[in-house]
Simulated scan of single mutants.
Amino acid sequence: MASQIITLIGVLMGAITSFFATSWAERARFRQTMATRWDERKLDTYVEYISCVKETSRAAKRMLEAHFEGRDVGGPLAEMEAAEARRSVLFEGLVLLGDEAVSTAAVTVNERLWDLLKSTRDPDSIPAPVRDAMGPAIIDALNNLHRAARADLAIGARVGATGQP
């Protein structure tokens, strides 16, 4: 009878151990699935925001070219304003999904872009050397945003045996 009790206890311990191991593995898999899902969403948001910043910057350049060539600026201005409105909406998603470093870098991008847009709306009020330096300032701010986004997404991080950085 004692051997049957020991066998029963062994079976119960095995079942309990199996239950906890399976539960732990399922929770780990669920967390990994959720992290992957959010990382994909973050990546899409980051790419869309950065693309829109570039689109807005290119529209501003076209507006300046039109202004200094004496052409009608109505079309480029409307394009620039539409791109800026879209960028503003995309920024909200970036702030919601990104970590603090990404949000801070994006705020800097916004500030540099706003400087460019302000000079574009009234190009004669900004000296040419100052206006010309705004493009590289946006590029530097975008590069910082790229670095922050890669860090947030753990791109380039060393991955251990568990698949986690």
Rank of each mutant, 00 (worst) to 15 (best):
P76T: 05
R58K: 10
F68G: 01
T45C: 09
T36R: 15
L43F: 09
M63W: 02
V95R: 05
M63N: 02
F19S: 15
E65L: 12
R86Q: 09
V47G: 01
E65A: 12
E26P: 00
R41C: 02
F68K: 06
R27N: 07
D39I: 03
W24F: 15
V89G: 03
E69L: 10
F91D: 06
T22L: 10
F20K: 11
F91K: 06
E40T: 08
S23D: 06
S57K: 02
E69T: 08
S23Q: 11
R27L: 05
A85W: 13
L77N: 07
R87M: 15
S51T: 06
V73Y: 06
R87N: 04
A82C: 04
E81S: 10
L43C: 03
C52K: 02
L77T: 11
W38A: 00
K61A: 10
K61Y: 11
R62D: 07
A21T: 13
D72T: 04
E48G: 05
A28D: 15
Y46R: 03
V89N: 00
S88T: 13
E65C: 06
F20A: 08
E79Q: 15
C52W: 08
M63V: 00
P76E: 01
P76H: 02
W24Y: 14
M80R: 09
R87H: 06
F20R: 12
V95A: 04
V73Q: 02
H67D: 00
E26Y: 11
A78T: 12
M80T: 03
D39Y: 07
A83V: 01
E79I: 11
V73K: 08
G93R: 09
E55H: 08
F20Y: 15
A83L: 07
R27V: 00
D44M: 09
M63A: 05
T33K: 14
V95T: 00
E84V: 04
G75H: 00
E40P: 04
E84M: 07
Y46E: 03
Y46T: 04
E92P: 04
C52G: 07
R71N: 04
K61E: 11
M34A: 05
P76F: 01
T33I: 03
W38E: 09
M63I: 02
S88W: 03
Q32G: 13
D44Y: 09
Q32N: 09
E92H: 13
K42Q: 06
R41V: 01
R27Y: 05
S88A: 08
Q32C: 03
A60T: 06
S57M: 14
E81F: 08
V73E: 05
R37I: 01
M80E: 01
M34E: 10
G74K: 04
L77I: 03
A85E: 15
E69I: 07
V47S: 06
A59E: 03
L64E: 02
G75F: 04
Q32E: 15
W38L: 09
A78L: 13
E26F: 12
S88Q: 06
A21K: 13
S57F: 10
F20S: 07
S23R: 13
D44E: 10
K61L: 14
A25V: 11
T22C: 02
A83C: 14
V95Q: 02
T22G: 07
W24V: 10
A21L: 15
D72L: 05
A25H: 12
E26T: 14
R37L: 14
T56R: 01
L43Y: 09
E26N: 15
W38H: 12
W38F: 12
V89M: 01
V89C: 02
